[in-house]
Design a protein around this nucleic acid. Structure first.
Length: 446
RNA sequence: GUGGGUAUAGCUCAGUCGGUUAGAGCGCUAGAUUGUGGUUCUAGAGGUCGCCGGUUCGAUUCCGGUUAUCCACCCCA
């Protein structure tokens, strides 16, 4: 049969895994330094945990896991006969693959509330699955890297998360722009323009500003039933570049003023932070996700055309749906795949990230193979990444293998070398070859 | 959910205005080279031309359907 993998999924080959690990390791180092702890949750959740949390669209994109055993005997026969897949699903699938890391995290917090010291700072790096139509840079299986704090309303945490973004991207050698805003400012805009009831429609339109431009945004707001006079006021406020300039425009909106105040506090905390990257107030930043209620943030790479490579914000009542009220959270997410792509485009992966083999031993016959195996132990004890070709087959084959592995050095073991207690070390790039003792080889490669 | 492209060797693809034996590059195997890879040369293996049907004397080629996959939109990371 012809091998294949499900659409929207990918294999990761050694170089890619090594590079991805380098990104993850860089993140982990920073997260831990800021006091965050890792958790992991199962790939599968109960379907009831997931459904209804991502809107109607989201429910359609959930991967459902078919029950084991005689699942048909317990199926909803009424739905089955009616051909109603939507209705049938819960009776034949009680589990689903996780769709993001936030909902499982909320579930985790509620289930473990007695063991958790609040505020709880956690990070989580795991794959998630979405049954979306795949396209460029969008897959059905992909990694998310989330950092969240729950159980505190302090705006200090917003500042910390900005610092984390700044530090991670600096360490990776990426030049980025960090844009921040506050949902309350957007709510204030709606309030000031007298269309509080159209808040969600307004943000959906504003969120597309980068992509479609101001004229189209006006159009979309109009289509979504926002009156012309209000649109004028909103557009007026969208032109504002500083918090100060915004204050008078929001004089009649308590919500807007609260948002300005909150954002100002975040800037104050960061005053002495010495960020490496630009940090800007961006009133047009909206973020599609409706559960954000305060601070919102988005990161874009400079010098390269690629959407956002990270985003997040504050959400009140993350855990309410699971029965734990009034737990506020704030968190950010890193777009692993896009960060990878940007770094590849800009050639930012250091060579050390590849973890390649340093030395391959090659033997001519059974006796020297045994001898080489003994040498191998000593070389490895010195911490050198080395291997011995498993069979003393003809040299051409072993050499071709070493070459394909892209090893910088090989060491040949034959009867001559064995007698002298040495190995013949060959530099694969220059072709220079010389007898060396084990100590010399270890010295050279260490 | 909507629209478009593609499907030919292990991989990436060309090609056949419908006709006898379907090609290239890379990869693979062997040799030139029995203690030396990467370069070069020589030879070889490898194909149900996605699947089902239609038109035709004849279909890998044209038409219809189907499946898979990629891309764009909606949405999202």
């Amino acid at each position: 049969m012809k091998p294949s993998i499900p659409k929207g999924t990918r294999d990761f080959s050694p170089v890619q895994v090594a590079r991805r690990n380098y990104i993850f390791q860089t993140m982990r180092t920073v997260f831990v330094k800021y006091g965050f702890q890792p958790i992991e949750t199962p790939a599968m959740e109960n379907l009831s945990t997931l459904t209804g949390k991502y809107g109607e669209e989201g429910d359609k994109l959930l991967f459902k896991v078919l029950n084991n055993g005689d699942f048909l005997s317990k199926a909803d026969t009424e739905a089955l006969e009616a051909g109603d897949s939507q209705k049938l699903a819960p009776s034949i699938a009680r589990r689903g693959l996780r769709y993001d890391l936030t909902v499982p995290f909320a579930r985790y917090v509620v289930m473990h509330q007695n063991d958790i010291a609040f505020p709880f700072k956690r990070y989580q790096i795991q794959p998630v699955w979405r049954a979306d139509r795949p396209q460029k840079g969008r897959y059905q299986e992909f990694y998310q890297c989330d950092v969240d704090v729950v159980g505190s309303q302090s705006l200090m945490l917003e500042a910390e998360l900005v610092q984390i973004y700044d530090e991670v991207f600096s360490k990776l050698g990426l030049d980025v722009s960090i844009k921040i805003n506050n949902r309350k400012i957007l709510a204030g805009m709606a309030e000031a323009a007298g269309v509080s009831d159209k808040f969600v429609d307004m943000t959906i339109a504003i969120d597309k500003l980068d992509k479609i431009g101001m004229d189209k945004v006006r159009e979309e707001m109009s289509e979504r039933g926002i009156p012309e006079a209000s649109i004028k006021q909103i557009v007026n406020m969208l032109e504002v570049k500083s918090l100060e300039a915004l204050r008078p425009l929001m004089a009649n909106s308590p919500m807007g003023q609260k948002g300005i105040e909150e954002l100002q506090t975040v800037f104050d905390f960061l005053e002495a932070a010495n960020l490496n990257n630009q940090l800007n107030f961006e009133i047009t930043l909206a973020r599609g996700l409706s559960y954000y209620t305060g601070f919102i943030v988005e990161v874009a790479a400079n010098n390269v055309e690629m959407g956002s490579i990270g985003g997040g914000g504050r959400y009140d009542d993350l855990t309410g749906i699971f029965g734990l009220k009034d737990v506020s959270g704030v968190g950010v997410s890193f777009g692993a795949a896009r960060i990878y792509d940007v770094m590849e485009t800009l050639d930012l992966f250091p060579k050390e990230a590849e973890e390649n083999i340093q030395l391959i031993l090659i033997a001519f016959d059974e006796a020297s193979h045994r001898y080489a195996f003994k040498c191998l132990q000593k070389i490895r004890s010195a911490g050198i990444k080395a291997e011995l070709y498993p069979d003393p087959i003809k040299l051409k084959k072993q050499m071709a293998y070493a070459n394909a592995r892209n090893t910088p050095y090989i060491a040949l073991a034959g009867s001559n070398e064995m007698e002298k207690g040495m190995l013949s070390l060959k530099n694969m790039e220059s072709g220079v070859q010389e007898d060396k003792s084990l100590d010399e080889i270890i010295q050279l490669l260490k």
